[in-house]
Design a protein around this nucleic acid. Structure first.
Lengths: 235, 235
DNA sequence: CCGCGCTAGTGCACTTGTTCACAAAGTATT
DNA sequence: AATACTTTGTGAACAAGTGCACTAGCGCGG
């Protein structure tokens, strides 16, 4: 008779931090350390101790008061929770600069993921080997996904192609997508989507950078005359 | 007599969405569309209309009821807010796979940023040209940053080097850092830090992917014997 | 000039996330 | 066995973010 059968819906914010703990714990394990306190873990993960404890408490009561958490045990718990006990095959779509870098990126396979297919729309690239794997035409996406049991797709195409590629991935049966293209794509219910966007990140940094220096507000903003002019209706 | 002189602290969540609006507006402007409603903008940016309106209201009252927002005008407001009216020179540290991809990445300069320096610790890479720019030794970081007025640093090194590089960037006078290395780095007060982490993103996807299939809770977790065994240190 | 239709702006209730602070529960020590 | 010390787990206060639903304001057609 388990307590709280599955009344454990882990908050999104917590899920997003589990990988941090996972990594921190791995590093700790490599140093042959047996137990960590929430405070140590917090330091390693760059958060605060209360948050660590609350986050971990969603997974269950796996700590020992007065001692801390058993590193290996907690690793097992978290990797189970994150679904890292299995290896996830991944397809990368768009083998340009970024796609190639991702395909060659070591840390990819290192943590339970494995680049299992590369596809690109450009026929010139087909057959080319990148990171030991041949580039296939995008038309074969569905077959590759089905045959290799791929569930996760990474989009590294130009922005213009992103939505189209997304649709193809979804049609092919992919249900988790990581989008590197600087474009908003939409997916049907039941498909997870996360995005990584360089330009966005830089612009956010730019905001705070600009804020630090002269951000003197003097009431309403009146745009440059130049820009004001453009506002005039053209039709 | 301006109302709310600078009582406008823009919420973080809003700042993070401004780049989305900015991009959506740019696309809209390219199609020679003069005005957008919050609803249209919401669709383009992948959020909901109420959020758009609330977000934009932090910038001021720049919409027209019954009509919408003037695209060019709003673009000017947002780009001012994001500090995109100037060009930000950027240094990339670590010219491996990812660093090279970033250096060659077009969309970089496209939106107000400009790769102005590349540095790497490996002497073999020094002098090599990547994306039309020579790779310099990391020792010259401070000089480059000072001479080229660089404020933003991008870390594309292996995890092990990340903290060290971060410290050097900070010492060199950088106050905004975008970290691609899979490591937690800490920065002093007054320095902005954002991170982009492939492994983390994939693991989050993995969680939800695993959740969709068999996530049957049956009480407390007892780790696999195998894993339990692995607990023995590998040295 | 009036009224209709449309859309921005916003107060408010609600949800989610964070942090504090303390009781509970363990270890270590004498 | 009792006391001191450490550290988890969590209730509760607080903060941030979201979304509804309504009001205010603008443009346009008659």
């Amino acid at each position: 008779m388990p307590d709280r059968l599955d009344g454990r819906r882990i908050p999104e914010a917590t899920v997003a931090r589990l990988p941090l703990y996972y990594r921190a714990l791995n590093e700790t394990a490599e140093r042959d350390i047996e137990t960590v306190s929430s405070e140590q873990l917090a330091d390693l993960a760059g958060v605060n101790a209360a948050k660590v404890r609350k986050d971990l408490s969603y997974l269950g009561s796996y700590g020992t008061r007065g001692v801390g958490y058993a590193v290996e045990f907690l690793l097992a718990v978290i990797s189970r929770e994150l679904g890292l006990t299995q290896d996830w095959p991944v397809v990368i779509v768009g083998i340009g600069n970024l796609g190639q870098a991702l395909a060659n990126y070591g840390g990819f396979g290192a943590r339970g993921f494995q680049v299992s297919a590369l596809v690109d729309a450009d026929p010139a690239k087909h057959g080319e080997k990148v990171g030991g794997l041949a580039v296939d035409p995008i038309e074969s996406l569905a077959d590759l996904v089905a045959m290799r049991g791929i569930r996760i797709g990474v989009i590294a195409t130009p922005a213009a192609a992103a939505q189209d590629v997304t649709d193809q991935l979804v049609d092919a049966g992919i249900s988790s997508i990581l989008n590197f293209a600087p474009a908003i794509v939409s997916v049907p219910e039941g498909v997870s989507l996360r995005k990584v966007d360089l330009a966005t990140e830089l612009q956010i940094l730019s905001y705070y950078q600009a804020e630090r220096k002269s951000r003197r507000r003097v009431g309403k903003f009146t745009p440059d005359v130049q820009l004001q002019a453009t506002t005039a209706k053209t039709s």
